[in-house]
Amino acid sequence: MASLVSRRPVLGARAGRARNVSVVCGKSLFGGPWSAKPSVPYSKYGGTGLPSALMTAPAGGTQKVFGTGPAIDFKGVHHVALLCENVETSLAFYQGILGLQINPDRPHHKLPYRGAWLMIGPEMIHLMELPNPDPLSGRPEHGGRDRHFCVGVAAIDPLVSKLQEAGVPYTKSMSGRPALFFRDPDMNCLECVEMESWRG
């Protein structure tokens, strides 16, 4: 696919001055196709990693669609990656309390850090024992006001019983749905919602 590059003035998010930003279509914005090394520092985009042209829609219009060709055929979420301080502590939570099982088809010994792959329905949670840049204190009491991921359960009551038995705090959804929020030992937040038919 041919790359389409346009250069036009974009208002700097911090400096408040117009500057030229390359908008690349059909190619990674960061150098070659999926280059690991950005050709333009993130700071050029106001620290967001994306130029302003990609983040805002024109006044009174709709968001511009970049690139050509067929739409991306997304299939769903394959896994959610969570940082943890200690794999054993996390496994005591996810296996011992939630009852999740390790996926034997995803061995972790090939990665340069400790971790584990856990099955959660048809998807997975990837625990990674790596330094966590997020603060563990001062997080919102209600997980619905923090970063979280949501999974469906057939019934919410068994989960409530498990959390209460283990002394894990939780809060109910403020929308009135049969859903609740709780955190793991590393303050990662999970939401579980009762669904009669998963993705139905």
Results as ranks from 00 to 15, higher is better:
150 C>V: 04
180 L>H: 06
149 F>Q: 05
167 G>L: 11
161 S>Y: 08
175 S>D: 11
136 L>Y: 00
150 C>K: 02
152 G>S: 14
169 P>D: 00
182 F>E: 00
171 T>W: 06
135 P>Y: 00
135 P>R: 07
165 E>L: 13
153 V>F: 12
149 F>C: 10
136 L>D: 00
179 A>P: 06
152 G>P: 03
176 G>V: 14
170 Y>F: 15
142 H>V: 04
143 G>W: 01
151 V>M: 11
137 S>M: 07
160 V>I: 15
178 P>V: 09
180 L>Q: 05
167 G>Q: 08
145 R>P: 00
145 R>H: 12
140 P>E: 03
157 D>C: 07
174 M>E: 09
139 R>M: 02
170 Y>L: 09
183 R>Q: 06
155 A>L: 13
143 G>K: 02
145 R>E: 08
166 A>R: 10
146 D>S: 12
156 I>C: 14
140 P>Y: 04
164 Q>N: 14
138 G>W: 04
169 P>E: 00
179 A>W: 03
159 L>I: 14
143 G>S: 07
176 G>M: 14
171 T>L: 07
135 P>A: 10
150 C>E: 02
147 R>W: 01
151 V>I: 14
158 P>C: 10
177 R>E: 11
170 Y>A: 09
162 K>E: 03
174 M>C: 05
183 R>K: 09
138 G>F: 06
143 G>Q: 02
167 G>H: 07
150 C>H: 06
168 V>W: 03
178 P>E: 11
168 V>F: 04
150 C>Y: 00
167 G>K: 09
171 T>H: 09
164 Q>I: 08
149 F>G: 05
147 R>P: 03
136 L>T: 01
173 S>F: 06
167 G>F: 10
138 G>N: 01
154 A>Y: 02
162 K>T: 08
137 S>P: 01
183 R>H: 00
148 H>W: 01
181 F>C: 02
136 L>R: 07
160 V>P: 08
138 G>L: 05
153 V>T: 12
149 F>D: 00
170 Y>H: 09
135 P>I: 03
163 L>V: 12
178 P>S: 14
177 R>T: 13
158 P>T: 11
164 Q>F: 04
164 Q>K: 15
144 G>M: 10
144 G>F: 07
144 G>D: 02
143 G>T: 05
171 T>R: 13
136 L>S: 01
141 E>S: 12
145 R>A: 13
139 R>T: 00
175 S>K: 13
161 S>V: 15
139 R>P: 00
153 V>L: 13
182 F>R: 02
183 R>D: 01
135 P>T: 05
174 M>F: 14
152 G>Y: 12
155 A>R: 15
138 G>Q: 03
157 D>R: 14
141 E>N: 10
171 T>M: 10
174 M>A: 13
182 F>Q: 04
142 H>I: 10
179 A>L: 09
170 Y>R: 09
164 Q>T: 13
158 P>M: 11
